[in-house]
Amino acid sequence: MLKEEVKRLLEEALEENPSLFLIQFEIKGDNQILVVIDGDNGVSVNDCIAVSRKIEHNLDREEQDFSLEVTSAGAASPLEIPRQYKKNLGRKLSVRTENQQFEATLDSATEEEIVLRWKAREPKPIGKGKVTVKKEAVLKYADIVEAKVMITF
């Protein structure tokens, strides 16, 4: 009952601001409602407040006691869904698969896979010394164990 009602209110809140999207929604024991959102243009405190109010103001505390936490996906949070990859095109990612690790620029993202590009120094095919070569990796989301945006200062 509570879960369906909260889900409906959450969907309405996200319809009111189409640049926002849901990353996680869960109700833990003691009716502790946890919502994590992200946005194509980032998420402001006001965005979190708007979603929180939409849910909180339409639930009856007399009927059911609950706590509500609406947060944004943090800068260090792993990327979870294709829409998050798409909003980070051109940024450097750290991507781990079962048996490989990449630090590369996110070149493209579809609903099924991502393309990473980077430059590497490799020995020349003939002669001494090294040459810079352009590398590319196409990874399916199912093969990605974890992907994070690399924050540089």
Rank of each mutant, 00 (worst) to 15 (best):
W118A: 01
A104V: 11
V145S: 06
P123Q: 09
N41A: 12
T132P: 04
Q24W: 04
H57C: 07
V131Q: 15
I49C: 04
Q32T: 12
R83G: 06
Q24I: 01
V45R: 09
F102N: 02
S94P: 00
D40T: 13
L139Q: 02
L34K: 05
I55G: 00
T105M: 10
K130W: 03
D30A: 10
I151M: 15
R8N: 14
G90W: 13
R117K: 13
F21Y: 15
L10E: 10
L89M: 14
E69C: 03
K119A: 06
Q64S: 10
D40Y: 09
F21T: 11
R96P: 01
A13K: 07
E63W: 07
D40S: 02
E98R: 13
Q64F: 12
D107S: 15
A104F: 13
E26W: 03
E80P: 00
K128S: 02
E136G: 07
V95E: 03
A50M: 05
E111L: 06
L116A: 12
T110A: 08
V149C: 05
S94Q: 08
E80A: 13
E80R: 10
D38K: 00
I27C: 02
A73G: 08
L68S: 02
P78V: 09
R121I: 02
K124A: 04
G39L: 05
Q100R: 15
S72I: 08
R117C: 09
L14H: 08
S19D: 15
Q100L: 08
P82Q: 02
K128Q: 07
N17W: 04
K3Q: 07
I151W: 05
K148V: 13
P125G: 10
R117Q: 02
L34I: 11
S44R: 00
A76N: 10
K86T: 09
V45W: 05
T105F: 15
I144E: 05
I23V: 12
L22G: 04
R96L: 10
H57Q: 11
A50C: 03
Y85D: 04
L22M: 12
E146N: 08
K92M: 14
E16W: 01
S67V: 08
A137C: 13
G29M: 09
N58L: 01
T152L: 15
